[in-house]
Design a protein around this nucleic acid. Structure first.
Lengths: 240, 240
DNA sequence: CGATCGATTGAGCCCTCTCAAGAGAGGTGG
DNA sequence: CCACCTCTCTTGAGAGGGCTCAATCGATCG
């Protein structure tokens, strides 16, 4: 359990409107914990004993259906809050959280939530904003799944991941954590086979560059064009 | 602007933990407004000037894509809060709200929200719970759209509507507001043609009874069975 | 009683899934 | 350090669920 420097986290949305002193109070109750790549932080259904802020790394939240299929709910980036089941009245975690990279989190016992909220009302309003944005994002996803074809959905998913966790590299923007075709399929409601075919197609057109659990967007702009393509509209053919 | 009897709304989730007096304070700032069937309460993109509690009737929230397709976000039942864009930090409504039946709402100016939340912290925590549940429901929808076939999704949608707004009638449970095949298509990410075919099929099997903007579930249990059907699993054939 | 809006139904196609096989990359243990 | 083994990715062939296009019917409302 390491000490956390308040000035490093003061700018996070969860702590908006907090004085240095208040922030100190809050951080004093948190532990800092490290999770190795591919380890589970919590499991769906487990009782929600802790809530978290991600400091370092990346976390995947996913749900499993009764028949065993997995769906990726979202990827958590550094600075984001997760595991706040308690705050929204759930006694159990609604999804499984897995570190996709070596990750460091701040962890508070869920039992402290009521007291902390009573003491710091800004905690509730800040969390409300966060959950609200997440609701918007999820609605966007529903709209996309309802109205777009798989290729457009995959394009949107990649662009979103790049915006959220992109790292500039020589030939474009690389998604900054290991992500498989299967993961993308589970984000977009399709199969890994279809994703593989689509990415292969894009790679041969020079739009992206792929690898094992690795994707680089070489032409984000052209990918956006593809993502916005209207049903039945022609796409300009490749250059020979 | 009618007077609202506090005792009639005291049990609503938004007001949980309020004293009679506090509730009176809150209600004093609200107006009660009636909207005729098929009238718009607010439009997507409009600035979020008001937030609401539905007292009577039913409201459909829907989003429109750039290319003009509509997606139904949810149906609001009496007692529920809606239009809380302001609370989650949105300056504009993210969806259009339409009264699908003659409806009565309580309306607060959005500008009062910050003051009300400061005075009544329970307002924030109650809204947090509400938005949290909605996030869960939306995630469920994403999971369904990712893993289930259209027939199962439609079955789930009808069962949910019946549970939420069902009225017992002679031959089963009727969905208590006008809903078209098109509406159901927009809830489940399919076309009205496919919904029509599915409902026709069910009607001939005696599972439901249809009509113009009207659906009665005659055998909710068998519909649940259908809704949970596993990929590729056989369904018992009809009786001759 | 006519007009408009919702529902039904057929025909044909295509996007995407399923089934199947195999190749390449990385990690691991002897 | 190399061989093996596992996990990821690729690609083909075929099928089918659901969509598109099109026409008609029926019911509710003014």
């Amino acid at each position: 359990m390491a000490k956390v420097d308040p000035s490093l986290v003061a700018h996070l949305p969860l702590f908006a409107g907090f004085s240095t002193e208040e922030l100190g109070d809050l951080l004093r109750e948190a532990r800092s914990v490290r999770f190795a790549k591919n380890s589970a932080i919590f499991e769906e259904g487990e009782d929600a004993h802790t809530f978290f802020v991600l400091l370092h790394g990346h976390v995947r939240a996913s749900k499993t259906t009764p028949s065993g299929e997995q769906v990726v709910v979202r990827y958590v980036s550094p600075g984001e809050t997760f595991g706040v089941a308690m705050a929204i009245g759930l006694p159990n975690y609604p999804a499984t959280a897995t570190a996709v990279d070596d990750s460091v989190v701040l962890a508070w016992p869920a039992s402290t939530w009521p007291r902390l909220v009573a003491k710091f009302p800004a905690l509730a309003t800040n969390t409300l904003q966060t959950i609200g944005s997440r609701l918007q994002e999820t609605h966007t996803r529903v709209v996309e799944m309802s109205t777009q074809q798989v290729e457009q959905r995959v394009a949107h998913a990649l662009l979103r991941l790049a915006k959220q966790s992109g790292r500039k590299v020589e030939h474009g923007v690389e998604i900054d954590f290991p992500i498989s075709r299967q993961d993308i399929a589970q984000m977009t409601g399709t199969t890994l086979h279809t994703v593989s075919r689509i990415l292969s197609g894009w790679e041969s057109r020079g739009l992206i560059e792929g690898g094992r659990q690795r994707i680089v967007l070489r032409e984000p702009h052209n990918l956006s064009v593809l993502a916005e393509a209207i049903q039945g509209e022609d796409v300009p053919p490749d250059r020979p």
